[in-house]
Design a protein around this nucleic acid. Structure first.
Length: 454
RNA sequence: UCCCGCGUAGCUCAGCUGGUAGAGCAGACGGCUGUUAACCGUCGGGUCGCAGGUUCGAGUCCUGCCGCGGGAGCCA
């Protein structure tokens, strides 16, 4: 950042006599301010709020590392600086120099006694006021909404979770595999795919990287992908995005129980990391940290059959064989104070690639992980069908185009092996950890059924 | 696709059993040494989503359409 070249500050006693201005104060960040108490610094950032009185004005300056109150006292400023400071628009970009001091009256405990400022980029009539707005208005101004406190906190937690995911897998010798986003006709059900043109042929945006990470297992044993996922489902709920980010690990020689162990370890790692590194953000979001502290192993594990029995014992009339709906999931998660695994669902309710349960062929070896507090399913996983004949039979049962799965079936022809994996929805997970009601806030630019801009 | 709800000032909303449009915030101006979404005063600001209907008269009642929100299904 360019230091001010036209400082109007009066010369200090330690400054050698010079007709020119003082040497510019060293640039600093708000986060580093406590280390500069008593010294002069220059901060660059955006005006978050301005409160003007007759002889004193307060500029809340946000620089991306934090927010600090800058105090402008009229009697200590030039007319030009006072006039500039008291007419700054919300979100104007400025460089402010002054001395750092600790003051109990200031939010955050530190403030800057303003001695000079320079307008970098003016801002007039910033659309988002410091008050409540409707969702539509805020999403229309998402590019500006990102600057607000709750959005910054949520997105910072998202970034921390993303980094924690990479660290978790790196420490466990997983190899990251980036799977394709453009795919030919392959997937679980073509109705939920976004179609696009690929040199005259139809192509689809990926709705899962799973088949690809399965193929990388024999190469690296433990792999994961982390990327955008596209679902053309016409869902309009607070749990849905048409474009979201998913993490899909795949582990050779892991069975369904190993798979749940890994999910449990990952979730605990993510929650602990956010508790450790984002306490400020959690407090700003008014997230009850005590609830998150409870997220420790082991998570309860309840089979689909047990869940149905218990639901019906509680007065519900739920038929065995149906998939659990949102109401059932909320009920089940309400029985516990931490995430709960529901495992081994009926075959008809789940995807073709899941391995048949040898102890009960009506079911498959799979699990969902339901987050507490009604946040719903954040993970879906399974042991994969590794038997060629059974897999082919399942593809035919589901009336899927067998020819599209030729390369996938090759994995069962050349050294097939037991393996398991899962998909973790990033925004749902972050939404739950951050305690936000709608996952659209946990992705910088949400893509919803009726929203593609900004 | 279906169910429920909502569209009034730049923003957030009020407006009763129909009788010619209101507040707060934002903006402009003025006041105030310490504010925390500052406060006090003054001023400007409207195709009541669109179209049709009922009525002497519609923001208000009816129909259709559009937009938005929530939910179901489906999913992470």
């Amino acid at each position: 950042m360019t230091p001010p070249s036209d400082s109007t500050r009066p010369a200090g006693p330690s400054t050698p006599p010079s007709p020119e201005a003082d040497p510019p104060p060293p640039p600093a960040t708000v986060r580093a301010l406590p280390g500069h108490v008593g010294g002069e610094v220059a901060l660059s950032g955006w005006v978050q709020a301005l409160r003007v009185h007759a002889r004193v004005a307060f500029v809340m300056l946000r620089d991306g590392t934090g927010t600090v109150q800058c105090v402008a006292v009229r009697s200590q400023l030039s007319e030009e600086d006072w006039a500039l400071a008291t007419t700054l628009g919300q979100e104007a970009c400025v460089e402010i120099s002054g001395s750092v001091r600790a003051d109990a009256r200031a939010p955050g405990g530190h403030e800057l006694a303003l001695s000079g400022l320079r307008l970098i980029g003016p801002s007039e009539d910033f659309p988002i006021q410091r008050k409540e707005h409707g969702v539509e208005f805020l999403l229309d101004h998402r590019h500006l909404w990102l600057r607000s406190g709750i959005q910054r906190a949520g997105l910072r937690i998202r970034a921390e979770v993303e980094q924690a995911i990479h660290d978790f897998f790196y420490e466990r010798d997983f190899v990251r595999i980036d799977t394709p986003i453009l795919t030919g006709a392959i997937g679980e059900s073509a109705g939920t795919l976004f179609e696009t043109d690929y040199f005259g042929d139809p192509a689809f945006l990926a709705q899962t990287g799973q088949l690809y990470v399965e193929s990388a297992c024999p190469a690296f044993r433990k792999v994961y992908c982390f990327g955008p996922t596209f679902r053309a489902e016409k869902s309009k709920t607070r749990r849905h995005l048409t474009e979201f980010w998913m993490i899909e690990p795949e582990v050779a020689f892991a069975d369904s129980d190993d798979n749940m162990d890994l999910q449990e370890a990952l979730i605990c790692h993510l929650v602990a990391r956010v508790l450790e590194r984002c306490p400020t953000e959690l407090d700003l979001l008014k997230r009850d940290r005590a609830v998150l502290e409870k997220v420790r192993p082991p998570f309860p594990r309840i089979s689909y059959g047990e869940a149905v029995e218990r639901l019906n014992a509680g007065g519900r009339d739920f038929e065995w064989g149906r998939d659990l709906g949102a109401v059932e999931e909320t009920t089940i998660s309400s029985w516990y104070d931490r995430p709960v695994f529901v495992y081994n669902y009926p075959k008809e309710a789940k995807a073709f690639y899941m391995k048949e349960n040898p102890d009960d062929p009506r079911t498959v070896l799979c699990n969902d992980l339901l987050a507490p507090e009604g946040y719903g399913e954040i993970v879906g996983g399974s042991q994969r069908e590794d038997d060629l004949d059974r897999l082919q039979a399942r593809i035919r049962e589901e009336k899927l185009p067998e020819e599209a799965y030729g390369w996938y079936l090759d994995l069962r022809r050349y050294g097939t092996f037991p393996h398991s994996g899962f998909g973790l929805g990033l925004e749902r997970t972050v939404g739950w950890i951050a305690g936000r009601p709608h996952i659209r806030e946990l992705i910088p630019y949400p893509r919803l059924i009726n929203r593609l801009t900004p």
